[in-house]
Design a protein around this nucleic acid. Sequence first.
DNA 1: GGTTGAATTGAACGCGCGTTCAGATAACCT
DNA 2: AGGTTATCTGAACGCGCGTTCAATTCAACC
Lengths: 193, 193
Amino acid sequence: MARKQGSHADITGPKVRQAALRLFARHGFAAVSMRQIAAEVGVQAGALYLYTADKQTLLFELMRDHLEELLEDWQAPDADPVDQLESFVRHHIRFHLDRPELVFIAYMELRNLTPGNFAIIEGLRRDYEDRLEAVLKAGQASGRFAVPDTKLATMALIAMLTGVTTWYREGGRLDRAAVEAAYWDMVRKAVGT
Amino acid sequence: MARKQGSHADITGPKVRQAALRLFARHGFAAVSMRQIAAEVGVQAGALYLYTADKQTLLFELMRDHLEELLEDWQAPDADPVDQLESFVRHHIRFHLDRPELVFIAYMELRNLTPGNFAIIEGLRRDYEDRLEAVLKAGQASGRFAVPDTKLATMALIAMLTGVTTWYREGGRLDRAAVEAAYWDMVRKAVGT
DNA sequence: GGTTGAATTGAACGCGCGTTCAGATAACCT
DNA sequence: AGGTTATCTGAACGCGCGTTCAATTCAACC
């Protein structure tokens, strides 16, 4: 059987990535087989290789696309460092709460990347960290912030904010606006502003 | 060959756990085989089953022992909430920097636990979170702290502090004392004290 | 020095893995 | 209607997996 209705490639391709995303996030890259992904898509395992070179590439492209979208989606606004920081915090929380599975994979499956792919992903991640550090440095220089060390503060704040995905549940005690506000309150104080 | 020198059980047992710890942390539970662990110990795969019921139990006991040690190692001092919080922060950083591999496993391999084992580990983790939240609640009640939400603040602070293991390297730009001090400074400010 | 038993080997079990590829199928084009 | 081509199947490849267990080895004991 093939070509049952319209062009299947435009449908199956995204389905493969979506199934891989779901399964990798739930069970981990190494614990998921190509046959499981194929079953989720509704296809035999061999057909997956029309849409990805191999399993490793499937993982790598999920992570790369995620980080590239993250980088595209936020630019520091032309404002003072405090407003820039608030913008960063609110965007980070929104973006991450919208993509819990991608966030999970991008942080957990680094060690399953080949060295070459790892270097690329790590570079993208560092670009993102540098964006935040630039804001902190600007604020520190202008005397608006008082952080003990901008690099350490960058890592500390990103870890704190990203952690929201580990506990936040839709429909829980706090809604997104409350979560955003609470994190921003803590970040604001932590940097001494 | 057997019993080459003294009692081997006392030596091989810990070696098995150590090898599993190292390999699970480096490559992930699902990506490590019993044969790899055995090779690291210097033994055939079958011999591992003298020291563990199965691979799952090996993972579970590493995580359980780690969390139980964490819980045993810190009790809130009889002091005001600010000092309790400082004690918690400094202990958390020290304890985690001393055991980066266990920390990594305990946070990353949760999804590879069977449901029963997962429930036990999650219970231990919640006990630890409750310790911090109790401090925050006490500080909030006495007016020393001003956090937006004690549960959210608990999760935010633990995520921030645990993140230290992802970037800290021995012999790097900052030593442990500086790291401890910097995190405490940010935590102190974040809770509004 | 013979016996015991803890410690380990090494082979075996059935199974699923990632990946390849020749062949089948069905939608499209002329 | 017939040919073309994108899409997918299904079988096959060699390999390593977690786990079991009879047989073996050798330090310790009598």
